[in-house]
Amino acid sequence: MDEEYDVIVLGTGLTECILSGIMSVNGKKVLHMDRNPYYGGESSSITPLEELYKRFQLLEGPPESMGRGRDWNVDLIPKFLMANGQLVKMLLYTEVTRYLDFKVVEGSFVYKGGKIYKVPSTETEALASNLMGMFEKRRFRKFLVFVANFDENDPKTFEGVDPQTTSMRDVYRKFDLGQDVIDFTGHALALYRTDDYLDQPCLETVNRIKLYSESLARYGKSPYLYPLYGLGELPQGFARLSAIYGGTYMLNKPVDDIIMENGKVVGVKSEGEVARCKQLICDPSYIPDRVRKAGQVIRIICILSHPIKNTNDANSCQIIIPQNQVNRKSDIYVCMISYAHNVAAQGKYIAIASTTVETTDPEKEVEPALELLEPIDQKFVAISDLYEPIDDGCESQVFCSCSYDATTHFETTCNDIKDIYKRMAGTAFDFENMKRKQNDVFGEAEQ
């Protein structure tokens, strides 16, 4: 370990593993360490099931009705991949897709007046949907046509809207959309967690709705994908990429100290040895004095023996409960997957309800979601602090990732990755940087 590296990475969460992969592909010498004996950090999948019970201090362990412990891979952080989103792009560019198998999530649902409705995925579904009345549908269709044709580089498509100054509230007004449709559009399509976006320039919202539609167009059922064997497969896929390009991995490796000289990182000390480096990437748990708390998320993992009611017996789905429907500031989400994804025993389902904490009784906040899941065989409640770095790391060369937020997709995580890359490399992130180099010394032969 007593060696000189360009970059040392602490923690094998998804953000850290993707950055480690990119740095290795770009010719950097990388050492990647984790104090845990497993990959994934906060974003790991726990197996066998006995391990999950232990982690949540349920000492009696799983009953026999849960089947074989080894058949379970339970995500600690519930997220899906947008089919046309940035993480899929990263997987394709790096060819990490060859280590993973994905399934399309069967449906996306939205909560309205105590019931759940399928988010329409085709024009026919939209016309048949009970989510809105006849005239509302016509106006909504006009709005969707506007979004589909919108091109930020072609003012002819703006229809009198200025993407940089017109607020989204004004765009909704222009198409005369009612409150329910606005809730549905902002939260189930643009996937905002709160209503803060309404008074911001509309460009980002329009682009988010386009991303949803384009992702949906790829597979038809929903815009989301999920990897077989759980999300823990993602960091491992990128760790393989890093290793192929010469990255060194050490799990179960305690970090005793991060060594600084004149305010700059110069190395990491572990078990009496020092590895030197020019730059350091880590998750917040490794540098508690360089991060601040930015809120909390509650996630309740529920094991069920039945599909969720009114989802047409889907073996995977997402449910969004827009905040307006339950008098909150932030949406509540449910991600459900099952034995069909090799993450649970035969006939079992895993539904994870999550939201940003707003009160001193977080469990009560998630109740509307839990009511949709009854009866629940077993619950595991996790309340996590969200951390963000206190500075950009440019001076110390210590670059810290943000905690995983309450969103049900990876777009915010990818933004964090691109942002850290830019601060480390001094140049904007470009997907081309992730391409495997042809015929290089570490390149794998085609399968």
Rank of each mutant, 00 (worst) to 15 (best):
D6A: 05
D6S: 14
V9D: 03
L10F: 11
L10V: 12
G11W: 01
G13V: 00
T15W: 06
T15F: 15
T15H: 14
L19M: 00
G21D: 06
L31C: 04
L31P: 01
M33C: 11
D34L: 03
R35S: 01
R35V: 06
Y39R: 08
E42N: 10
S43G: 11
Y53W: 03
K54G: 04
G67T: 12
R70N: 04
D71K: 12
L76A: 15
G85M: 11
K89C: 15
E95A: 13
T97P: 08
R98W: 05
G107L: 04
S108A: 15
V110S: 10
G113E: 08
G114R: 02
G114F: 06
K118Y: 01
K118C: 02
E125G: 10
N130D: 08
N130E: 13
G133F: 09
K137D: 13
R141W: 10
F146I: 10
P155L: 07
T157P: 02
F158L: 11
F158P: 14
E159F: 13
G160P: 05
Q164H: 07
S167W: 14
M168A: 14
M168E: 14
R169L: 10
Y172G: 14
L177R: 01
D180C: 08
D180V: 00
T185V: 10
G186S: 06
H187S: 15
L189R: 04
D196H: 13
D199G: 08
L203F: 11
T205P: 05
L211F: 08
S213G: 07
A217D: 00
K221R: 10
K221L: 12
S222Y: 10
S222V: 14
A239L: 13
S242G: 11
S242M: 07
A243V: 03
A243E: 05
L251S: 04
P254S: 10
V255L: 07
V255I: 15
D257T: 15
I258S: 04
M260T: 06
G267F: 02
G267H: 02
E271K: 09
G272S: 06
V274F: 13
C277G: 04
Q279G: 04
Y286W: 15
A294P: 02
A294E: 08
I298R: 01
R299P: 01
L304K: 01
K309E: 10
N310F: 07
D313V: 10
S316W: 00
C317P: 01
Q318A: 05
I320L: 06
N324T: 07
Q325Y: 06
R328Q: 12
K329D: 09
S330K: 13
V334A: 05
S338D: 14
N342T: 11
A344P: 03
A344M: 14
K348Y: 14
I350T: 08
T359S: 08
D361Y: 06
P362T: 00
K364L: 03
E365D: 06
L372R: 07
L372T: 01
E374D: 05
Q378W: 06
V381K: 14
S384R: 10
D385R: 14
E388D: 00
E388V: 07
P389T: 01
H409S: 00
H409L: 00
E411Q: 13
E411A: 08
K422L: 01
M424V: 10
A428D: 00
A428G: 15
E432A: 11
N439K: 07
D440A: 06
A445V: 11
A445I: 08
E446V: 03
